[in-house]
């Protein structure tokens, strides 16, 4: 127990993370890269289902980077990092989805 406590302390002080955490994140990232790659290259799916697989695995892998590599979970106190990230995601989704939505309905040519 004492060793565990000391490790937790070191981790918090020195920028977080442990080898198993990084290794799991790395393995998950490889799996989440291989899934859409195999689906697309082998033509297992086409059209909307393939699009969904690509987008869902990309978002999951983004979450893996945030949680396992960028240590978003370990933030203490008021979670300003998380709040800033959520604001950023709102802006990103608005810009991308909004642009696509407007331009799809704007095919005048």
């Amino acid at each position: 127990m004492a060793t565990q406590g000391r490790h937790a302390h070191e981790a918090n002080e020195g920028g977080h993370g442990s080898l198993p955490e990084y290794a799991i994140g790395f393995a998950l990232s490889i799996i989440l890269t291989l899934i859409p790659l195999l689906v697309v290259l082998n033509g297992w799916m086409t059209g909307m289902p393939a699009l969904l697989v690509i987008l869902i695995t990309a978002v999951l892998q983004f979450a893996v980077q945030l949680l396992f590599f960028m240590h978003l979970r370990e933030e203490k106190g008021p979670r300003y990092n998380l709040m800033a990230l959520i604001l950023g995601i709102v802006v990103v989704v608005t810009v991308v989805a909004g642009s696509i939505w407007i331009m799809v309905h704007n095919k005048m040519y």
């Binding site: 070191e10 981790a11 020195g14 920028g15 977080h16 993370g17 442990s18 080898l19 990084y22 994140g25 790395f26 990232s29 490889i30 890269t33 790659l37 980077q65 590599f69």
Partner: peptide, 22 residues
């Protein structure tokens, strides 16, 4: 595909650098 796995691995080794720092 090579670029993707190279960058993914470098993200992992950058994490290993932080572990060495700790």
């Amino acid at each position: 595909i090579a670029e993707t796995f190279i960058l993914l691995t470098s993200s992992f080794t950058s994490g290993l650098a932080v572990l060495s720092l700790n």
